[in-house]
Amino acid sequence: MKAAILVFPGSNCDRDLQVAFERAGADVTMVWHKDDALPAGTDIVGVPGGFSYGDYLRCGAIAANSPITRSLKTHVERGGYALGICNGFQILTETRILPGALLRNAGLKYICRTVPLNVRTSDSDFTRGWAAGTELQIPIAHHDGNYQADAELLRELEGEDRIAFTYNDNPNGSSGDVAGVLSANRRVLGMMPHPERAADEALGGSDGRAMFTSLMTALVSA
């Protein structure tokens, strides 16, 4: 599996994501935002957390218009995989690769703690390592993680089984307790919680590791 991780000015979870992919056996290349092409043969693009461009204008808005993001869009349109975590999720909604938007947390505070998540579907290469209904302990660290979806969009996401994760105890006001959503072809996942920060027992937990091993299984022959 070849993974490319995008690095924007202000990204700060890029190295964590790199380690999580490498531990699962992936061949990882870091790609600077000013590059305009992804490495040949990229199977999956990781869009990491952080504060790209200082969250200016809106979280993810400037990164969504970076040169490398155009290549990301082409990659996704061709059926390529992408995983956006935290600021990465915000970037994926700003590019309209994923539906909805992320607003300031309902309680207005930055929240940094480990929260219980529910796996809502195992029908994706990101979540196949868990049974639906599994509870995971995964850290969140965000100020703008309040997922906004109107009733119609929520119905559509539920009807198509595209809600990957929900919060057990909604920390940020997200519509429908949504913590992560899949694209229609189930090959793009955006989520606010950080599975890459829960991929090593020595660093506080490994509940997120199955995401990377399950991607590896799916993409190793791709």
Binding site: L57, A61, N65, E94, R96, P99, A101
Partner: peptide, 9 residues
Amino acid sequence: EKLLANTVI
């Protein structure tokens, strides 16, 4: 449309 506003919200 392209940058200054996110017309979703």
